[in-house]
Nucleic acid binder design. Structure first.
Lengths: 125, 125
DNA sequence: AATACTGTACTATATATACTAATACAGATA
DNA sequence: TATCTGTATTAGTATATATAGTACAGTATT
């Protein structure tokens, strides 16, 4: 379910955070759906449980999942505009990235078609 | 000219790469303008010349500057659509970030107004 | 030619971060 | 009780980052 690249210079827990976020955003993981347990996923991916926990902690702090001791970790139902802090960060990142894209030659039209593509949801990488 | 945050968990050379890119994108640094020399900038920022060199090497590999032994490092004149590899990366990043922004509640209209804002250039952070 | 700038390369070292490992505790569930 | 969950702590190792020192090559000025 979550395929990682161990040769990547990107930290494993960061890759995992990104993957889960993508799956939630694309609605592959539905609201309140249970994620694999820390130990189960660690065994599946043959990595340390602590690394999974670190990823889950990060996802929780960003508001994408919630965890309940003894029960598990679940997808946080998306209430739009709720996670103001995260939205602020993303807007700043977006501004920089848009400037870079335009500098490199992307047109506003191209970007808008990207938006449309993404708005539909369920597209893959 | 390049103010850094030493308390940040972001690597110094990464911060420097971002800063220079932003200045080039915003046309604060003009085509073929000479950047401070490795040693000069190192002294200014009170960091090691090797760290500056690492940032410059990265900027060169991304096509933002070019360096000439014995002369210095200069802003690479932007030929749009030339740096295909970099553009590809940016497009992928943009796609992910757009999906995230929309998930968090940004509307297409908001994003388009961001594009307009950025297209004008010379805006600051 | 001499000097003083440039970029670039290399080795060594210190520190921070990322990851692994093992263990323990607390809550939920059957 | 037994077994599943998340969570916390401590320790050791590997990698990334930054510093330090030195050296070499090309350019420009005198």
């Amino acid at each position: 379910m979550f395929d990682l690249d161990f040769r990547s210079r990107k930290a494993i827990y960061v890759q995992l955070v990104d993957k889960v976020k993508q799956l939630i955003i694309k609605d592959v993981l539905k609201d309140d759906e249970k994620l694999p347990s820390v130990r189960e996923l660690a065994q599946q991916l043959t990595i340390n449980p602590n690394t999974i926990q670190k990823a889950y902690r990060e996802l929780e702090s960003q508001g994408y999942i919630y965890s309940v001791k003894g029960k598990g970790s679940f997808v946080h139902p998306s209430k739009k505009m709720e996670n103001v802090e995260e939205l602020k960060k993303v807007r700043e990142q977006l501004k920089k990235l848009l400037a870079e894209a335009i500098y490199l030659g992307m047109t506003a039209e191209e970007i808008e078609s990207l938006i449309n593509e993404v708005e539909g949801g369920q597209q893959d990488d």
